[in-house]
Design a protein around this nucleic acid. Structure first.
Lengths: 349, 349
DNA sequence: TTGAAAGCGCTAACAT
DNA sequence: ATGTTAGCGCTTTCAA
């Protein structure tokens, strides 16, 4: 007879050993099977026995051991969640309203289907959390050639990410249509009279940001406009404010600003004011943002929403389908963005 | 011979069965024991054998089953994270900079000690996630008589929360000193000439918010000042803006504003402007906020930081100590707040 | 130096 | 209707 680690593992020295199924069975004068069936509502048991088992379990404060169940069922119902951007500051992504919403919506959608989300540091690799029993991992906005995606795929762990993983076996994706989003926004701005729309973009290799840049350049080229792009050196208010400042002080002043780098809308307005622009009088403004402050500013700021909640829903739906019905079905889905036009981008007539 | 569920559980129909330790052992012509020891660097094995085991495992793409390990070790190294406030909208808490920072800092600190964080919906009860193998649960800012805390304690799951759980066996806490925070802020405001400081508070039963209210009232009473409290009906920009509006339009206009309800600092400034106040000329402003925009406004806004990162660090330290060294040691710790004085609360001389 | 076997706590196939 | 037993995949004691 071997002696396994202290019952209940290396847990609290002072903690009493946890009540197990067998303890309940013994106490009730029944077998494990019967108690298990009684508690799980399975099997054919006489109501009396079932009740007795339940009563005893309750009285003894029995709680099934989740790990044992997981092992038995072969399913952990745990999903990893890691974001590709922000690798330099692995835990700041939640401070972005976009990621805050994406993350919470993902957790919500997952939990609704019976899966829980495990938060992982941005930019971390599989090896750092290999001993978590994750059934799949969501990689939000991976950077170009993201190491995690490779690692995961090599370890045969299903990956849910964006369009950049298309075609890889075991990889699934949800994507926003950057091309269409940019076109829609620029057309809107154009329709309000903008001729010189400047773009402020994070210096990131995310698929979305790359897509935005390409679409913007394409749009300008097609119309013979000069592309006016300013890159924010880094995420965070400071660097993005500086990028906006520099976009607004260009020799040829822009008449519209499309801020894709995440910046609190009131701060965009303040920058405009600081540089002597009237919004929307001589500067139209649209921000890619999920920040609710946009509707409370004076004037309210138009935003392009990337619809993180819809993205999360679609992603989890795909994930559940893949995990539970095998790998068939579409491996990707496109979610449309939504342009919320407010006063900041409506040229007064 | 029984036939357990499909090897690997109900996983992908098309997925090949996962490589197990025994598969590697067979392939290498060794025993499970030997391969396990080789891979874990334990036991006394000849270098040749160890290498052979490792090589075979690598070649076959072996990855240990995390659930089996957990069962064996009796430890899941998983911590639940649930917030008490926001029960009405269980997933919006991340949109608050305070909770975003608290959450990410908690996840970071936990992971550093080898624990991963599982995100749970705000206001949810133990029964909704009873089948997750959580070794402990962190209940951030529980509301008065929070059901989760009771549930968890009854289920003998260690709880880490705030001072409101003090004294309960199995409960541990980290708290901010609301009394001192309020006193410090009001003194600062007073030193800058404020005589009529209005307070804007969420209508919440959180320990911190209750503490702030009590401290504020006490402070006013001690000095014979009238207490000027406005409650924000709800979280979110809209309701809090309305509360600020109403505080600013009181018959007797305040000369200082202490905004404890979470609101984007630029929006506080805008409200002041809207009502004809000059900040800091005739209204001093201090916000309880972790929002980085505070330093980028004109004027920059003074904030009282609740130091979520320090709170998280302290909490996880306590948690690890309790989980790993038994339940002794202090069951609670107090973390000081930090007043960051900026231009918005410095009376120009 | 290596291997056989027990057992973590649970569920389900099978026998009674 | 209820119980016996095997086994999920792993680590560890103990024997060889």
């Amino acid at each position: 007879m071997t002696s396994a680690p202290q019952r209940g593992g290396h847990t609290l020295r002072t903690a009493p050993p946890r009540v197990r199924l067998v303890d309940v069975a013994r106490e009730a004068g029944l077998s494990k099977t019967t108690v298990s069936a009684a508690l799980n509502g399975t099997g054919r048991l006489s109501p009396a026995v079932r009740e007795k088992a339940r009563e005893t379990a309750r009285r003894m404060g029995y709680r099934p051991n989740a790990t044992a169940r997981q092992l038995r069922s072969g399913r952990a119902r745990l999903i990893g969640y890691v974001v590709g951007e922000f690798a330099g500051t692995p835990w700041t992504y939640l401070e972005s309203p976009y990621f805050a919403q994406l993350t919470s919506a993902t957790a919500a959608a997952a939990l609704k289907r019976g899966y829980a989300l495990v938060m992982l540091p941005a930019g971390s690799l599989h090896s750092e959390w290999a001993d978590l029993p994750l059934e799949a991992v969501i990689v939000a906005d991976p950077v170009a050639d993201d190491g995690v995606v490779e690692d995961l795929l090599a370890a045969r762990i299903p990956v849910f990410s964006d369009g950049s993983v298309d075609g890889r076996p075991g990889a699934h994706w949800v994507d926003v249509d950057a091309e269409e989003a940019v076109r829609g926004t620029l057309e809107h701005l154009g329709s309000q009279g903008a001729r010189r729309t400047a773009l402020v973009l994070p210096d990131s290799t995310t698929r979305f940001h790359r897509g935005v840049l390409a679409a913007y350049r394409g749009w300008c080229a097609a119309r013979g406009h000069t592309a006016r792009v300013t890159f924010a050196a880094d995420a965070g208010n400071g660097p993005v404010v500086r990028a906006v400042d520099s976009a607004l002080t260009a020799a040829e002043r822009p008449d519209a600003l499309f801020v894709v780098a995440e910046l609190s809308p009131p701060l965009v307005l303040e920058a405009a004011r600081r540089h002597g622009y009237d919004v929307p009088g001589d500067l139209l403004v649209v921000c890619v943002s999920e920040d609710g402050t946009a509707e409370h500013t004076e004037p309210p700021v138009s935003t392009l929403s990337l619809q993180p909640r819809e993205v999360a829903e679609a992603g989890i739906e795909l994930l559940v389908a893949a995990l539970e019905n095998g790998d068939e079905g579409p491996s990707g889905v496109l979610v449309p963005t939504r342009l919320l036009v407010r006063e900041s981008s409506r040229r007064p007539s």
